[in-house]
Structure formats: C-alpha cells, structure tokens
Amino acid sequence: MNTTLQRPAALSVRGVAKSFGTTPVLRGVDFDVEAGTVFALLGSNGAGKTTLIRILATLLQPDSGTATVLECDVAGEPESVRRAISLTGQFAAVDEVLTGRENLHLVARLRHVDRPAQVADEMLRRFSLDEAGDRRAGEYSGGMRRRLDIAMSLVGDPPILFLDEPTTGLDPQSRIEVWNLVRELVAAGTTVLLTTQYRDEAEHLADRIAILHEGRIARQGTLAELRSLLPRRQPVLIEPEPTLEDIFLALVSNASEPVAGAGVDS
C-alpha cells in the first residue's frame, strides 16, 4: 500500500506506546498526517483513541516512542505544540450559563487575543451563530453547542484541530452540521485529526483513515486503498430501500412540505 505523503506532515507519530499499570493501551503506533487534510483514527471504545489524542495534546506522557506537531516534539517542546493545536473533546465544553458571545469573548481574553470582542463577533458569524449570540448557550441545540465549542477551539486560528469523537450523542441533522463544518475548516487550510467509532463518519470526512484496534494500527490508507483489501462484492440488482436516517433527514429538512403517502398522527 502506498503511504507516501503528498504534502508536508503536520503530525508525525512513531512507536508511541502507553500503559496504565499493567494494562497496555497503545502498543507502538505509527502514522503521519498531511497538512490541510482530515486524518481519521477509527476504532471501537477502548481502542486507545483518546489516550493517543491526550498524548499529542501534551496532556499525557507516552511510555515510549516520539510524536511531533509541526516538527515540534510533543514531550520536549510542549509549549510550542500547544500554540499550534486546539482540542475539542467528546462533550461540548461550553459554559451554559453564559451566552455564545460571552463564551467566545472569555476564551479570546484567556488566549490574549487582540480585540476579543471583535473576535467573538467574527467567530459567531463564521459559525452561523450570530443570531443566537446573545442567547444562553444552555438554550442551544446539540449541533449549535458543538459549533460553538469548535468555534471556541479555533479562537486564535490554530493550524491543527483535534476532534475527539465530535458527534457522540448528536442527532443525524446535527451530525451533518458538524461534518459540513469540518469540510469548511479543511478547505480553509486547517489540519484535522479526528477520532471516531462511526465508520460512515470516517468514510465521509477523512482523506486517510487508520484503523486502531487494541492499541495498534491494524491498517491505514485512503478509503480506496482500504476497500482494495477485500474482494469486490457482486453487484446487487435490487434497488436499495431508503434508510431510516434518509427518511428522518428528508422529513426534518422539508417539515413544511407534505410527504406523499404519509399518514397523519391523531
């Protein structure tokens, strides 16, 4: 399988291992992430995804191996690494008592960004939250809270964003909002390292995918490269039925329009 990078590596991981007590969690992980792309770590719960993200974010020391972010060593140059990255965890880290604008203003001040009020207004517009900017974040939908959370992560324009299970607990419509947002960020030049247990999420978003299983990379490559590992299926001549997700999204996207053949709840 061809693993040659076409662009410079924004992140490079070599032989990273980590155990907690006598339990090994990472067993020698290797991969590179090209600048301006989405790299997905796909694995089930307990595969080691969050542990790896915490190591790359300088929150945890590896037992062995090396990792660099924009050529800065994660263990040896943590301050330089932190200036280059931002981390969005599994659950939105917004203050639900504050408004969306106040959340962004607070983060801008903590990061010593010039003109924090102006930055807050710009981020609200950029993430389509300007009309909700003066509402308490506790009143936001799940998708809006996640957008606000990512907006807060991007105050100061860090070039690399870690998204750890970003759509956990979101409804289908909110998931698609987050997916569209990730695409927009990458189109603008942001590098995204995404961890997910959802195969469709990796399939829709990632330029490259690494399958993490029991602390090891089982295989990595583009979607086409990974598909080539299995024999091609025989064509199915039966027209597939729409999925429940297709139906749900069609209904909520056109709530004002009647759906042919639909009954009426009484």
Rank of each mutant, 00 (worst) to 15 (best):
H204M: 06
L148R: 01
S153V: 07
F162H: 06
L170P: 01
A187L: 14
G138I: 14
Q173K: 13
H204L: 05
S153F: 04
R147F: 05
R219Q: 11
V186A: 01
E184Y: 01
L226E: 08
G189H: 10
D200K: 13
E225D: 14
A206P: 12
D200M: 13
N180V: 07
D157S: 15
G143L: 04
A132F: 05
E139V: 07
D200V: 15
L170G: 01
E201F: 04
R146L: 01
R135G: 02
Q173V: 11
L223M: 06
L170E: 07
T222I: 14
R147N: 06
D207A: 10
R146Q: 03
D207F: 13
M152C: 12
A188R: 15
A210F: 10
E139K: 11
L230I: 09
G138E: 13
E203W: 02
I209S: 03
A151V: 11
G133P: 05
A206M: 05
Y198F: 09
D134E: 14
E165P: 10
T190H: 11
R183P: 02
D200C: 09
G143C: 10
A210V: 14
L129C: 10
P231Y: 07
L185E: 01
H204G: 00
D164L: 05
I217F: 08
L154H: 09
G138D: 14
L223G: 00
H213V: 15
E214I: 08
L223W: 12
L129S: 04
I211L: 15
P231G: 02
G215R: 12
V155M: 06
R145C: 03
P159D: 00
E214N: 11
I160S: 03
A132Y: 05
H204P: 00
S153Q: 09
R227C: 08
G143D: 03
G169Y: 04
E184V: 05
V155S: 03
P166W: 03
T195S: 05
Y198A: 00
G133Q: 08
N180G: 06
R183L: 05
E214W: 04
T222D: 08
L161K: 03
Y198P: 04
P166K: 02
F162L: 07
A188H: 10
D200R: 15
P159H: 06
L185I: 15
A137V: 14
A137C: 09
E165S: 01
D171T: 01
M144Q: 12
A137R: 12
S228Y: 07
P159I: 01
E184D: 14
I238Y: 03
N180W: 03
G133H: 04
P158G: 00
I238M: 09
D171N: 04
P159R: 00
E225F: 12
R199D: 05
